[in-house]
């Protein structure tokens, strides 16, 4: 008796959840059907580029779907902004603890000329091991930046060069929808809850 009632309740629950999911899906697809704001990053599913991580593995944005994703730009010759951002992110990941293991955390190099996978590997060894670094042909980095509505520019400097680049950290939900941006050097009291919202 009790078993049958549990089965009926269970089935009812499943049917209800299914109806809710379908309804939500319909509502969502209607909501996102119009062109998204051109100033906002594309959903990850609509991004298209191929880069290489610090271990030499090929990475495409479609690999990120299913987990929340954090993306930011930088380069290893950058003395101030990039170590600060990496240090901030390492601190946020530490605050989040094992919960943050589910995140894709990705640095995309805006200086692929100097940042080979081996260089990125050396550099990232100084920060939280959950941070991945990507590099590759300039054209692919440009495609990545275009998808994120980010920009970078090589600037000659004293016989050398530096790279100006978008300094914020982009957050995406597990299904690839854009969630929010953490501004450069934003206080962790604001940054950590933003990340947590993509984890729930």
């Amino acid at each position: 008796m009790r078993t049958r009632r549990a089965v009926i309740l269970g089935l009812g629950g499943v049917a209800g959840a299914l109806a809710f999911t379908l309804g939500l899906g319909a509502w969502r697809s209607r909501g996102t059907a119009p062109a998204t704001d051109p100033r906002l990053p594309l959903p990850i599913a609509e991004m298209d580029f191929t880069l290489t991580d610090q271990c030499g593995a090929t990475v495409r944005p479609s690999d990120w779907i299913g987990r929340p994703t954090m993306i930011f730009f930088g380069f290893t010759f950058c003395p101030d902004v990039c170590p600060t951002t990496l240090s901030d992110i390492s601190g946020w990941l530490e605050d989040l603890g094992p919960e943050a293991d589910r995140l894709n955390v990705t640095l995309i190099s805006v200086d692929p000329e100097r940042d080979t996978p081996a260089v990125l590997s050396d550099y990232l060894a100084n920060f939280d091991p959950r941070i991945t670094g990507l590099t590759g042909p300039l054209a692919e980095v440009e495609r990545a930046a275009a998808g994120l509505r980010a920009s970078f520019e090589k600037v000659p400097r004293d016989g050398d060069y530096t790279v100006n680049h978008t300094a914020g950290v982009f957050l995406f939900h597990p299904d690839g929808r854009f969630a929010s941006i953490i501004d450069y050097h934003e206080d962790r009291r604001f940054a950590v809850p933003k990340i947590r919202r993509t984890l729930s």
């Binding site: 101030d80 980010a150 600037v155 530096t162 100006n164 680049h165 300094a167 941006i181 501004d183 450069y184």
Partner: peptide, 13 residues
Amino acid sequence: LHETVVTDGVASM
């Protein structure tokens, strides 16, 4: 001496 300046989200030095 440098200054990091973030203008429209883009950092320059």
